[in-house]
Design a protein around this nucleic acid. Structure first.
Lengths: 203, 203
DNA sequence: GTTGACACATACCGACTGGTCTGTATTCTA
DNA sequence: TAGAATACAGACCAGTCGGTATGTGTCAAC
């Protein structure tokens, strides 16, 4: 038997997790292949099933350990202490859009949105864990708007919850549009309209 | 061999097409099974491969002959001659939302959006034909806004293309949100914010 | 030095996949 | 009415799927 040069369970697990994220991102969960994942991770089925209980369990781990932190870091954290959510949302959106268009990230869309659309009707556990991430995002946005109102940056009559629900949905839709149209300009155009909307909320 | 009581190729083809639509709608294209489709259509592989060149060809046919007409009828046609797009969009959205929440249509989301999210990065022909539908929708909305401006119902400084890109993306996003959260109230909440936005475009 | 838990590797399994092939009944055409 | 074209039916195929069983090398504890 070919011997393992070095033993590093954390490393192996991480490689599998990362390869799984990429595979599911590109091919979806159902279309994703465990064989390709272990090949890409330069390991074997034995290792995969040693670290994870099966395909679904691997999927949950990808959501929990890869997508969730990545998403929080990119979308929630920058808004965590904002008292001027309109300005900050615009800035965040602009820099994210620029980066996504820059590298080819536009092609495959948002990993969170992809998994959510595919898996939420098929598996309740997937749906719940993905919805939790969306919910957290909505709460972050809503909280920022509430602070914005207090700080006098946002009109007093706006409902943070309502606005947050809309903004989050709109962002997801814009990412989907970009992915389907492969047209960065279209997304920027929709983005301008979103900015116009945000500006109407200013006090 | 079991004999076919009556021969009706159109009927058979239609049954396969409808069963395929349902199957892909519920399980996605990759997750959809031809075996289940022929079973549901009460026919056989022979019939399926007689009428279609394969799974992909069947998928294209579903988009062209089922999703596209359905979509046009439900979203584009009601706006075709509108000169007051804000009022009409609100009405369309309200009645579509009510119906979707009424039956369980919320669960599986929008067929167009589902296929688009899953297949556009995997198959260029899928992407193009789906993008065409979205493009037509955007054009319908933009044209309605252009007429609305002429009719004095919409502010003169709004850009129909920009607004249309945003509205279409937002609608898609809201459908996706509803599907993932399984929460009709959340969609209605986002809908109210969309209405608020639309109202800011009134002259 | 021995033992036992861990971390894999490999061969393999049954189920199911999309797709093909052949046969046959039906219908259209001449 | 003969024959070609159409419209299936059903068995079958190779390949892939997720998952398992077993074996073996590694490593820490005693």
């Amino acid at each position: 038997m070919k011997t393992t040069a070095i033993r590093s369970p954390e490393n192996t697990r991480g490689r599998i997790l990362h390869a799984a994220f990429e595979e599911f991102y590109k091919n979806g969960f159902q279309g994703g292949s465990l064989n390709r994942i272990v090949e890409e991770a330069r390991t074997t089925k034995g290792a995969l099933f040693h670290h994870f209980d099966g395909k679904k369990d691997l999927g949950y781990a990808v959501v929990r350990e890869v997508i969730d932190p990545q998403f929080k870091q990119q979308w929630s954290d920058p808004l965590a202490n904002s008292t001027d959510p309109i300005t900050d949302l615009k800035r965040i959106f602009r820099q994210r859009a620029k980066r996504e268009i820059g590298n080819g990230g536009l092609v495959n869309g948002c990993p969170l949105n992809n998994l959510a659309q595919e898996m939420s009707p098929l598996d309740e556990k997937f749906r719940k864990s993905l919805d939790k991430i969306y919910g957290a995002w909505r709460e972050t946005v809503a909280a920022a708007f509430a602070r914005g109102i207090k700080a006098g940056k946002v009109r007093k009559d706006v409902s943070p919850g309502k606005v947050a629900a809309f903004i989050v949905a709109a962002q997801a839709g814009m990412a989907g549009t970009a992915k389907n149209s492969q047209n960065g300009k279209l997304m920027m155009q929709a983005g301008e309209a979103l900015f116009d909307y945000l500006d109407t909320l200013r006090s």
